[in-house]
Write a protein that binds this DNA or RNA. Structure first.
Lengths: 250, 250
DNA sequence: TGTCGTGCAGAGGTCCGACCACTAGAATAC
DNA sequence: GTATTCTAGTGGTCGGACCTCTGCACGACA
């Protein structure tokens, strides 16, 4: 990426970064209009926009057409579709994403059992109830499913791991946005979530980890089955990649 | 982020994404010059650059001034400084980064013990040797330290987890780029790496996980000590955040 | 009085065309 | 042969014009 001093992009990024680190800029805050900000920074509007675009791509800024540019609010997120794009590029396998998710969320569940607070338990309980109430509506169910896992991530007390989980799950959903689950499975799913909730609430970290792992393993095999009947592949790549000096055709 | 059809940015992103998914664009490939590409896509060069900038920020493209724009090569990486920026924004604590790293790398070490291949073992062994050879040179030592962990990530067979690890460690290094380690610690560090190597080589996953965890825990406390003498804090945040409608001062 | 529609101001989005800065390789001088 | 200089090609920056979207004030209407 561009160097620090020379490039306008980095000048903007560093300027905003400094403002954030000094506390002068907080989540939800609005930065000045582009024209004005550019004038104040003594750079062109185009360059300013490049820098803002960089920050927006990484989820640090939130640009709203016709409204203004804001510092990102809400839970920390890496670039929303970054993993999805990288996956397409490097040929990430579906089972690898599931594995990563399984590892992260199992640990997260254990941490939530150890550090969770009453408010988290309450929220988890509510989501479980909503899941049971919407077993007949996959769309609605999914919303509470996502929220349940998100609350666990919050309860873990480690926002970094939570952000990583968010990145993976969003890439996962992006890949399977077409496959709708069958209602029959949802009842089992809700049961498992209830088990997870109970383990966390009783501060049984090992149990929480184990049940979460079971839940995600089941979810994976269920989707594998639904998709192609193929089990998780174990491919290798000793790719002797060719380098094209000439631009590719478009 | 911008919508799919309307916004030029997403038009570019989706176009390139499609080219990647269809296999027409592979890591290392070069895309046409901006002027030509823009003409072919029937958009302005500025818009094209916005889209490319987005992809570059996420580590999918590699733009080289005076040379050309290429599809990113090498190991997959999320936006290099994304975590660092998000950390500044959301106030990530140092111990949280270490914890995330510890969890990821412990698991990675265990997976490497199970799935690693001869070539990985060889590479690990070489790095360990280099580490012993450079205990008197912290700069050099660090290089092999990083490589050692990177090989383990590769040997794990899960590039997604490897990319996440890379993201965290680069953010960590970014934070501590000033603190140089003392030579005395390096000997101990090398010993631990050797232990990790042996555990992995003998395919003892549990041992590999345990030693890696020990190593990272020690590294953390060593740095905590060096930095401020303060132990890992356990802070909380029930931040009642204010929302500023007016742009902040710059 | 309350509601709905319209217009406007301000913000980001796109475009153009010119020029600057960097890189690699070709041409040249030694 | 080697070192230097030149140059074509490519990304980087600029500014200034115009388009599009959003939120809100204002006024017409019921």
């Amino acid at each position: 990426m561009p160097k620090s001093d020379t490039h306008m992009t980095m000048r903007v990024v560093n300027h905003i970064r400094t403002m954030i680190e000094s506390g002068g800029l907080q989540p939800g805050d609005r930065i000045p209009p582009e024209r004005e900000f550019a004038r104040k920074l003594r750079i062109s509007r185009a360059s300013l926009r490049t820098g803002i675009g960089y920050l927006a791509a990484m989820g640090v800024m939130d640009v709203r057409h016709g409204v203004g540019t804001f510092v990102a609010d809400g839970p920390p997120e890496l670039g929303k579709s970054s993993l999805s794009l990288l996956g397409a590029l490097h040929g990430f396998q579906s089972w690898q994403m599931f594995e990563a998710r399984r590892i992260l969320e199992s640990e997260l569940a254990a941490m939530a059992a150890e550090r969770g607070r009453e408010q988290h338990f309450t929220a988890l309980s509510e989501e479980v109830a909503e899941m049971y109430a919407t077993v007949g509506n996959p769309i609605e169910y999914l919303i509470h499913d996502v929220r349940f896992h998100r609350v666990i991530a919050q309860a873990s007390g480690n926002p970094i791991l939570a952000a990583l989980m968010e990145t993976i799950t969003s890439a996962l959903y992006d890949e399977r946005r077409k496959t709708a689950e069958r209602s029959r499975d949802l009842k089992e799913s809700a049961d498992l979530h209830r088990e997870i909730y109970r383990a966390i609430r009783s501060r049984n970290a090992a149990e929480a980890r184990a049940v979460m792992e079971r839940h995600l393993t089941m979810a994976q095999s269920a989707q594998d089955l639904e998709l192609s009947g193929a089990p998780a592949p174990l491919s290798e790549n000793g790719k002797p990649r060719k380098v094209r000096r000439k631009p590719v055709e478009v």
